[in-house]
């Protein structure tokens, strides 16, 4: 019985991403559009008046020096700014057709649609399986078989399945740094998000683990809208289809330039961007 259920769910799930996300990325992964977006902490702006739109199903890199508001911008996209009591957000932000900041927005389902990966991989201190089950249960997947199938699919997606399939009951904390980060990505993927936000996902990893995670991020192209903050310009060059460059002016972050990654990194219009990507500033 379990096997039949498992098969049913698997065939059901397999259709989901690939069918929904056509070449334009109209349904499966959402475009992001910000208009005059600003975030203030205790009345002091972290970044101001950012108007930008990111294409769906592509990898966008946010680059710029420390303190230019990249992470704050990222945290606006799934309303993690709500957790900071002194934070205020102004302006308009849309993910797909949904506006993010009206008072009645269901934050939990927004965060399911917009997953986030942090710099420091933090699995919960339970087994690998429980890490998935907790998140899935919270979003209404009450059938344990379905949760297992989704977990398997997500782990396969990040290339971790063969490494951990025989020890799903093992504490997730005992995985290596790179494996932990891939587990966190898989856990976010299991919720079938449309957008994945990544805040310097490789900066806490060694070069080999970092290369594996980069490869994984690259494989997500076309299936999810990925917005990635990185300090590593070469990484942004390797991975990004689209890029946005932030800079600090009068202690406040501003968006200086955005556009196709190739253009921004190789033929930037703005002098500051030119200086930053060539390593002369920042």
């Amino acid at each position: 019985m379990n096997r039949i259920l498992r098969k049913l769910y698997r065939s059901d799930l397999e259709g989901v991403h690939y069918a929904e996300c056509d070449a334009n990325g109209a349904a499966g992964c959402a475009a992001i559009e910000a208009k005059n977006l600003s975030v203030h902490y205790d009345g002091v702006p972290a970044f101001r008046d950012v108007s930008v739109s990111f294409p769906p199903c592509q990898i966008t890199a946010l680059v710029g020096p420390s303190g230019c508001g990249k992470t704050s911008f990222l945290q606006c996209l799934n309303r993690l700014t709500d957790l900071i009591p002194a934070a205020e957000v102004f302006g308009d932000l849309r993910i797909g057709a949904t506006s993010v900041f009206p008072g009645d927005c269901d934050v939990s389902s927004l965060r399911k649609r917009v997953g986030m990966i942090f710099q420091k991989p933090t699995p919960f201190p339970f087994s690998i399986r429980k890490n998935f089950h907790l998140a899935l249960k919270e979003h209404g997947t009450h059938c344990s078989t379905e949760r297992d199938v989704r977990m398997e699919k997500a782990l396969r997606d990040v290339g971790l399945w063969t490494e951990v399939k025989d020890r799903l009951g093992m504490n997730a904390m005992s995985l290596s740094g790179g494996q932990k980060q891939r587990l966190c990505i898989a856990r976010a993927l299991a919720l079938q998000p449309e957008v994945l936000l990544m805040d310097e996902p490789c900066s806490a990893l060694d070069p080999i683990a970092s290369a594996t995670v980069e490869e994984l991020i690259s494989s997500l192209r076309g299936r999810y809208t990925v917005i990635m903050v990185t300090h590593n310009i070469s990484q942004a060059r390797r991975l990004a289809d689209y890029a946005a460059f932030f800079w600090v002016k009068h202690n406040t972050g501003h968006l200086v330039e955005h556009g196709e990654a190739k253009k921004l990194f190789y033929e930037p219009v703005n002098d500051l961007t030119q200086a930053y990507v060539s390593g002369r500033a920042g």
């Binding site: 957790l83 389902s109 927004l110 965060r111 399911k112 933090t122 919960f124 856990r187 919720l191």
Partner: peptide, 8 residues
């Protein structure tokens, strides 16, 4: 932070 990001 992680739990919030997972919509928990």
């Amino acid at each position: 932070l992680q739990a919030a990001a997972l919509g928990m």
